[in-house]
Protein backbone atom coordinates (compact mmCIF):
# COMPACT_ATOMS: atom_id res chain seq x y z
CA UNK A 1 0.00 0.00 0.00
CA UNK A 2 2.77 2.41 0.97
CA UNK A 3 4.61 1.45 -2.17
CA UNK A 4 1.55 2.33 -4.18
CA UNK A 5 1.12 5.72 -2.46
CA UNK A 6 4.79 6.51 -3.05
CA UNK A 7 4.43 5.60 -6.70
CA UNK A 8 1.35 7.79 -7.05
CA UNK A 9 3.38 10.70 -5.67
CA UNK A 10 6.10 9.91 -8.20
CA UNK A 11 3.46 9.83 -10.87
CA UNK A 12 2.19 13.25 -9.88
CA UNK A 13 5.72 14.68 -10.06
CA UNK A 14 6.42 13.30 -13.52
CA UNK A 15 2.83 13.99 -14.56
CA UNK A 16 3.34 17.69 -13.82
CA UNK A 17 6.45 17.64 -15.99
CA UNK A 18 4.44 15.97 -18.77
CA UNK A 19 1.81 18.67 -18.37
CA UNK A 20 4.50 21.33 -18.80
CA UNK A 21 5.71 19.62 -21.96
CA UNK A 22 2.19 19.34 -23.31
CA UNK A 23 1.45 22.94 -22.44
CA UNK A 24 4.51 24.25 -24.28
CA UNK A 25 3.78 22.08 -27.29
CA UNK A 26 0.18 23.15 -27.19
CA UNK A 27 1.18 26.83 -27.36
CA UNK A 28 3.50 26.26 -30.32
CA UNK A 29 1.20 23.91 -32.19
CA UNK A 30 -1.93 25.86 -31.38
CA UNK A 31 -0.74 29.38 -32.13
CA UNK A 32 1.53 28.63 -35.07
CA UNK A 33 -0.51 25.72 -36.47
CA UNK A 34 2.56 23.57 -37.07
CA UNK A 35 3.55 20.09 -35.87
CA UNK A 36 6.62 20.62 -33.71
CA UNK A 37 8.71 17.46 -33.85
CA UNK A 38 11.62 19.31 -32.29
CA UNK A 39 9.80 19.72 -28.98
CA UNK A 40 11.44 16.65 -27.45
CA UNK A 41 14.85 17.81 -28.60
CA UNK A 42 14.29 21.19 -26.93
CA UNK A 43 13.50 19.28 -23.73
CA UNK A 44 16.76 17.34 -24.02
CA UNK A 45 18.77 20.49 -24.74
CA UNK A 46 17.29 22.03 -21.58
CA UNK A 47 18.51 19.10 -19.51
CA UNK A 48 22.00 19.06 -21.00
CA UNK A 49 22.36 22.84 -20.74
CA UNK A 50 21.51 22.60 -17.05
CA UNK A 51 24.30 20.06 -16.50
CA UNK A 52 26.81 22.23 -18.35
CA UNK A 53 25.81 25.45 -16.63
CA UNK A 54 25.94 23.78 -13.24
CA UNK A 55 29.32 22.35 -14.22
CA UNK A 56 30.68 25.79 -15.07
CA UNK A 57 29.00 27.97 -12.47
CA UNK A 58 28.68 25.32 -9.77
CA UNK A 59 25.18 26.49 -8.85
CA UNK A 60 22.02 24.52 -9.56
CA UNK A 61 19.71 27.51 -9.18
CA UNK A 62 21.60 29.57 -11.72
CA UNK A 63 21.44 26.57 -14.03
CA UNK A 64 17.71 26.33 -13.56
CA UNK A 65 17.39 29.98 -14.57
CA UNK A 66 19.91 30.05 -17.40
CA UNK A 67 19.25 26.71 -19.15
CA UNK A 68 15.57 27.30 -20.03
CA UNK A 69 16.37 30.82 -21.19
CA UNK A 70 19.01 29.30 -23.46
CA UNK A 71 16.38 26.96 -24.88
CA UNK A 72 13.95 29.86 -25.33
CA UNK A 73 16.63 31.73 -27.29
CA UNK A 74 17.19 28.62 -29.39
CA UNK A 75 13.44 28.55 -30.02
CA UNK A 76 13.58 32.19 -31.03
CA UNK A 77 16.31 31.45 -33.57
CA UNK A 78 14.48 28.39 -34.92
CA UNK A 79 11.30 30.38 -35.44
CA UNK A 80 13.09 33.34 -36.93
CA UNK A 81 15.40 31.42 -39.27
CA UNK A 82 13.17 28.57 -40.36
CA UNK A 83 9.64 28.09 -39.12
CA UNK A 84 8.69 31.64 -40.17
CA UNK A 85 9.31 30.78 -43.80
CA UNK A 86 7.08 27.72 -43.67
CA UNK A 87 3.70 29.05 -42.55
CA UNK A 88 2.32 28.74 -46.06
CA UNK A 89 4.03 25.41 -46.72
CA UNK A 90 1.74 22.59 -45.61
CA UNK A 91 2.20 20.34 -42.61
CA UNK A 92 4.34 17.82 -44.47
CA UNK A 93 7.19 20.26 -45.01
CA UNK A 94 6.78 21.82 -41.57
CA UNK A 95 7.01 18.35 -40.09
CA UNK A 96 10.09 17.48 -42.11
CA UNK A 97 11.75 20.70 -41.03
CA UNK A 98 11.13 20.26 -37.32
CA UNK A 99 11.99 16.56 -37.55
CA UNK A 100 15.24 17.47 -39.28
CA UNK A 101 15.97 19.93 -36.48
CA UNK A 102 15.27 17.20 -33.93
CA UNK A 103 17.79 14.92 -35.65
CA UNK A 104 20.38 17.70 -35.77
CA UNK A 105 19.94 18.66 -32.10
CA UNK A 106 19.97 15.02 -31.04
CA UNK A 107 23.20 14.33 -32.91
CA UNK A 108 24.78 17.53 -31.62
CA UNK A 109 23.99 16.36 -28.08
CA UNK A 110 25.86 13.13 -28.80
CA UNK A 111 28.77 15.02 -30.34
CA UNK A 112 29.02 17.54 -27.49
CA UNK A 113 28.06 15.51 -24.42
CA UNK A 114 28.74 11.96 -25.61
CA UNK A 115 26.50 8.99 -26.35
CA UNK A 116 26.57 7.58 -22.81
CA UNK A 117 23.97 8.57 -20.24
CA UNK A 118 24.91 11.06 -17.53
CA UNK A 119 23.53 11.18 -14.01
CA UNK A 120 23.09 14.49 -12.25
CA UNK A 121 22.63 15.05 -8.53
CA UNK A 122 20.02 17.44 -7.17
CA UNK A 123 21.42 20.52 -5.34
CA UNK A 124 22.67 19.90 -1.77
CA UNK A 125 19.65 21.65 -0.29
CA UNK A 126 17.27 19.18 -1.93
CA UNK A 127 19.14 15.93 -1.39
CA UNK A 128 17.74 13.30 0.91
CA UNK A 129 14.12 12.85 1.83
CA UNK A 130 11.36 13.87 4.16
CA UNK A 131 9.17 11.60 6.23
CA UNK A 132 5.60 11.88 4.98
CA UNK A 133 4.26 9.40 7.52
CA UNK A 134 3.47 6.65 5.04
CA UNK A 135 6.72 6.89 3.15
CA UNK A 136 10.12 8.50 3.15
CA UNK A 137 10.01 10.72 0.09
CA UNK A 138 12.86 12.44 -1.86
CA UNK A 139 12.86 16.20 -1.31
CA UNK A 140 13.80 16.93 -4.87
CA UNK A 141 10.68 15.31 -6.25
CA UNK A 142 8.51 17.38 -3.93
CA UNK A 143 10.35 20.44 -5.22
CA UNK A 144 9.69 19.41 -8.83
CA UNK A 145 6.02 18.97 -8.05
CA UNK A 146 5.81 22.46 -6.56
CA UNK A 147 7.95 24.07 -9.23
CA UNK A 148 6.07 22.48 -12.14
CA UNK A 149 2.78 23.36 -10.45
CA UNK A 150 3.89 26.97 -10.04
CA UNK A 151 4.91 27.16 -13.70
CA UNK A 152 1.58 25.79 -14.83
CA UNK A 153 -0.23 28.35 -12.66
CA UNK A 154 1.99 31.17 -14.00
CA UNK A 155 1.29 30.11 -17.57
CA UNK A 156 -2.40 30.02 -16.76
CA UNK A 157 -2.25 33.50 -15.22
CA UNK A 158 -0.40 34.78 -18.27
CA UNK A 159 -2.91 33.28 -20.70
CA UNK A 160 -6.04 34.16 -18.76
CA UNK A 161 -5.25 37.37 -16.94
CA UNK A 162 -2.94 39.37 -19.17
CA UNK A 163 -3.81 41.18 -22.36
CA UNK A 164 -1.08 39.46 -24.36
CA UNK A 165 -2.26 36.10 -23.05
CA UNK A 166 -5.74 36.89 -24.31
CA UNK A 167 -4.30 37.77 -27.72
CA UNK A 168 -2.43 34.47 -27.72
CA UNK A 169 -5.60 32.54 -26.94
CA UNK A 170 -7.37 34.45 -29.68
CA UNK A 171 -4.52 33.49 -32.00
CA UNK A 172 -5.21 29.81 -31.31
CA UNK A 173 -8.89 30.34 -32.10
CA UNK A 174 -8.70 32.56 -35.17
CA UNK A 175 -5.48 33.89 -36.65
CA UNK A 176 -7.02 35.95 -39.44
CA UNK A 177 -9.22 37.83 -37.03
CA UNK A 178 -6.30 38.61 -34.75
CA UNK A 179 -4.20 40.00 -37.57
CA UNK A 180 -7.17 41.97 -38.90
CA UNK A 181 -7.40 43.64 -35.52
CA UNK A 182 -4.01 45.16 -36.18
CA UNK A 183 -1.99 42.90 -33.93
CA UNK A 184 1.50 41.94 -34.99
CA UNK A 185 0.81 38.28 -35.64
CA UNK A 186 4.43 37.57 -36.57
CA UNK A 187 5.51 38.82 -33.17
CA UNK A 188 2.85 36.66 -31.56
CA UNK A 189 4.16 33.57 -33.34
CA UNK A 190 7.71 34.29 -32.25
CA UNK A 191 6.70 34.83 -28.63
CA UNK A 192 4.59 31.66 -28.61
CA UNK A 193 7.44 29.58 -30.00
CA UNK A 194 9.95 30.99 -27.53
CA UNK A 195 7.55 30.50 -24.62
CA UNK A 196 6.80 26.92 -25.65
CA UNK A 197 10.52 26.26 -25.99
CA UNK A 198 11.10 27.78 -22.55
CA UNK A 199 8.58 25.42 -20.96
CA UNK A 200 10.19 22.43 -22.72
CA UNK A 201 13.62 23.61 -21.57
CA UNK A 202 12.65 24.00 -17.94
CA UNK A 203 10.88 20.64 -17.95
CA UNK A 204 14.13 19.14 -19.23
CA UNK A 205 16.22 20.96 -16.63
CA UNK A 206 13.93 19.80 -13.82
CA UNK A 207 13.98 16.22 -15.10
CA UNK A 208 17.77 15.93 -15.22
CA UNK A 209 18.32 15.13 -11.49
CA UNK A 210 15.41 12.67 -11.43
CA UNK A 211 16.04 10.48 -14.43
CA UNK A 212 19.52 11.44 -15.54
CA UNK A 213 20.31 12.32 -19.13
CA UNK A 214 20.67 10.32 -22.30
CA UNK A 215 20.50 11.34 -25.96
CA UNK A 216 17.30 9.36 -26.41
CA UNK A 217 15.42 11.34 -23.76
CA UNK A 218 14.13 13.86 -26.27
CA UNK A 219 12.33 11.43 -28.55
CA UNK A 220 10.75 9.59 -25.63
CA UNK A 221 9.43 12.87 -24.31
CA UNK A 222 8.21 13.97 -27.74
CA UNK A 223 5.82 11.03 -27.92
CA UNK A 224 4.62 11.79 -24.40
CA UNK A 225 4.03 15.46 -25.20
CA UNK A 226 1.95 14.37 -28.20
CA UNK A 227 -0.11 12.13 -25.95
CA UNK A 228 -0.78 15.03 -23.57
CA UNK A 229 -1.91 17.28 -26.41
CA UNK A 230 -3.98 14.56 -28.11
CA UNK A 231 -5.79 13.82 -24.86
CA UNK A 232 -5.91 17.31 -23.39
CA UNK A 233 -6.59 19.32 -26.51
CA UNK A 234 -4.70 22.19 -28.12
CA UNK A 235 -4.57 25.27 -25.95
CA UNK A 236 -6.50 23.56 -23.17
CA UNK A 237 -4.66 24.15 -19.92
CA UNK A 238 -6.81 21.98 -17.70
CA UNK A 239 -6.70 19.30 -20.38
CA UNK A 240 -2.90 19.32 -20.35
CA UNK A 241 -2.78 19.00 -16.56
CA UNK A 242 -5.39 16.23 -16.45
CA UNK A 243 -3.74 14.31 -19.29
CA UNK A 244 -0.26 14.78 -17.82
CA UNK A 245 -1.32 13.54 -14.39
CA UNK A 246 -3.29 10.65 -15.87
CA UNK A 247 -0.41 9.20 -17.83
CA UNK A 248 2.18 10.13 -15.18
CA UNK A 249 0.31 8.24 -12.45
CA UNK A 250 -0.58 5.33 -14.74
CA UNK A 251 3.06 4.98 -15.68
CA UNK A 252 4.30 5.12 -12.09
CA UNK A 253 1.75 2.61 -10.80
CA UNK A 254 2.43 0.16 -13.60
CA UNK A 255 6.18 0.58 -13.05
CA UNK A 256 5.77 -0.76 -9.51
CA UNK A 257 4.30 -4.05 -10.70
CA UNK A 258 5.45 -4.49 -14.29
CA UNK A 259 8.51 -2.35 -14.96
CA UNK A 260 8.97 -3.42 -18.58
CA UNK A 261 5.58 -2.07 -19.59
CA UNK A 262 5.95 1.30 -17.89
CA UNK A 263 6.62 3.30 -21.06
CA UNK A 264 4.28 1.41 -23.35
CA UNK A 265 1.47 1.97 -20.84
CA UNK A 266 1.52 5.73 -21.54
CA UNK A 267 0.54 5.11 -25.13
CA UNK A 268 -1.79 2.26 -24.25
CA UNK A 269 -3.69 4.55 -21.86
CA UNK A 270 -3.98 7.09 -24.66
CA UNK A 271 -5.33 4.45 -27.04
CA UNK A 272 -7.81 3.28 -24.41
CA UNK A 273 -9.08 6.81 -23.73
CA UNK A 274 -9.42 7.56 -27.44
CA UNK A 275 -11.34 4.33 -27.93
CA UNK A 276 -13.98 5.61 -25.52
CA UNK A 277 -13.61 9.31 -26.23
CA UNK A 278 -12.19 9.89 -29.74
CA UNK A 279 -12.35 13.64 -29.14
CA UNK A 280 -10.03 13.47 -26.10
CA UNK A 281 -10.66 14.06 -22.43
CA UNK A 282 -12.59 17.31 -22.71
CA UNK A 283 -13.99 17.03 -26.19
CA UNK A 284 -11.99 19.58 -28.10
CA UNK A 285 -11.86 20.50 -31.75
Amino acid sequence: MNLLLGQILNGIATGMLYALMGLGLSLITGVLNIPNFAHGALFAVGAYLLVSVVGVLGNFWLGLIVAPIGVALLGLVIEWAGVRRLYAAGHDYQLLFTFGLALILNELIIVIWGPVGISHLPPALLRGGVDLGFTFYPKYRLFVMGMAGALVVLTWLFLEKTKYGAIMRAGIENKEMVSLLGIDIQMLFTVAFALGAYLAGIAGALTAPIRGLSPGMGVDMLGIAFVVVALGGLGNLLGAIAAGLLIGVAQAVVAAYWTEASTAVIFAVMAAVLLVRPQGLFGIR
Binding site: N33, P35, H91, G223, F226, V229, A261, T263, A264, F267
Partner: peptide, 28 residues
Protein backbone atom coordinates in the same frame (compact mmCIF):
# COMPACT_ATOMS: atom_id res chain seq x y z
CA UNK B 1 -8.11 5.65 -33.55
CA UNK B 2 -6.45 8.14 -35.88
CA UNK B 3 -8.93 8.84 -38.66
CA UNK B 4 -11.45 10.29 -36.25
CA UNK B 5 -9.15 13.25 -35.75
CA UNK B 6 -7.68 15.33 -38.50
CA UNK B 7 -4.82 17.69 -39.25
CA UNK B 8 -2.19 18.07 -36.57
CA UNK B 9 -3.93 15.68 -34.19
CA UNK B 10 -3.81 12.96 -36.83
CA UNK B 11 -0.07 13.41 -37.29
CA UNK B 12 0.61 13.34 -33.56
CA UNK B 13 -1.56 10.26 -33.01
CA UNK B 14 0.17 8.25 -35.73
CA UNK B 15 3.49 9.08 -34.09
CA UNK B 16 2.29 8.30 -30.55
CA UNK B 17 0.87 4.93 -31.59
CA UNK B 18 4.10 4.22 -33.44
CA UNK B 19 5.83 4.73 -30.10
CA UNK B 20 3.42 2.25 -28.47
CA UNK B 21 4.44 -0.48 -30.94
CA UNK B 22 8.08 0.52 -30.65
CA UNK B 23 8.15 0.18 -26.88
CA UNK B 24 6.36 -3.17 -27.03
CA UNK B 25 9.02 -4.42 -29.45
CA UNK B 26 11.74 -2.86 -27.28
CA UNK B 27 10.64 -4.56 -24.08
CA UNK B 28 9.29 -7.87 -25.36
Amino acid sequence: LCVQRSGLYFIMLTFALNQLFYFIAYQW
